[in-house]
Write a protein that binds this DNA or RNA. Sequence first.
DNA 1: AACGGTCCCAACCGCGTGGAG
DNA 2: CCTCCACGCGGTTGGGACCGT
Length: 357
Amino acid sequence: MGRSPYCEKIGLKKGPWTPEEDQKLLAYIEEHGHGSWRALPSKAGLQRCGKSCRLRWTNYLRPDIKRGKFSLQEEQTIIQLHALLGNRWSAIATHLPKRTDNEIKNYWNTHLKKRLAKMGIDPVTHKAVSGALTGTADDKSAKAAAGRSHMAQWESARVEAEARLARESKMRTAASTPTALHAQPTNPPASTASPCLDVLRAWQGARIDLESPTSTLTFTGSNSGMLPTPRTTGLEISESNSAMWQQRSDELEGEESEWKFLSKQQLQGLDAKEREENFIGCEEPWFAGMAGVGAGFTGMLLDGTSVHDTSECWAESSHGQAEHSSHLSGDDENKNYWNGILGMVNTELPHQPPPLL
DNA sequence: AACGGTCCCAACCGCGTGGAG
DNA sequence: CCTCCACGCGGTTGGGACCGT
């Protein structure tokens, strides 16, 4: 299958964009929408390939991009979702409003990965490198990894579908009102979010039974969340998370308190007994195995091990978590960790406006 | 002040995928 | 079905900014 070289035309400019080029691209897209990226450069009077234009637009010029430092909440989201999804940056980005996959990827590679490594956590597995902190048995790790992989596959498919639907919906909106790109950059109309949610809810409502050598799941429509909920459990996460998103919207810059809030929220959402029942009662091997994943990270946080700057905040706020969970076993801590991740992906689309007070 | 090393991020590269013809 | 095209995604890199000596 022949693959057309994308940017091989001689004379096309590469490298950093000039303000003039930015202006041309912006002006053109505002007036016409991007349409076909391949055709865009000539129409817009740019000596660039379409791919370069698309990248510049999606990673830099798009009006609904939040630039600047990542909040602690965003960091936490990235770490948790990375533990679940791996390097699926676009999937992770769908849960971080106004952040691009490229930005998240860069931030992970330059900041978070190093920070986790410093803390003795393998950024790939999200477990303590030495295993000293967890004392995790090999078979348990293997189970956990298998479970995580299995779940990640499912979640990846879901997030992709969600992202695609959101994109398509957005494109339809953009196509019909190309000049409205700047009109409401941060609050797309509810109609753009609702359809995909409806589809996904319908998907869940269909009670899909997945059969595989390692798992048997039933997804119910009763849980407003997006993740497969094991038959025997009813993780009451979604409710607390809608409040969580509201908190995020209200206090997007209030990093330290947010982390504390989230931890408490997660813990208070379920009492210790419920949490235990939710996970221990789980019959699915892949799900049960997940309890071991993230032990290192959680353990490190609960130890209050600080490194520098924001990780001190993590440690500090994790003491708050420890206050609530000091009576919990290591397994319970793991459950909290995964509860957080589940809550993250259970959360409705980030760009959906928070419920009115 | 000069130099070298490191950090950071915008941009590029190449592969995979879906859709149109 | 097959081929080609356009696009999206994840990995990688180039070079400016920053920092320590």
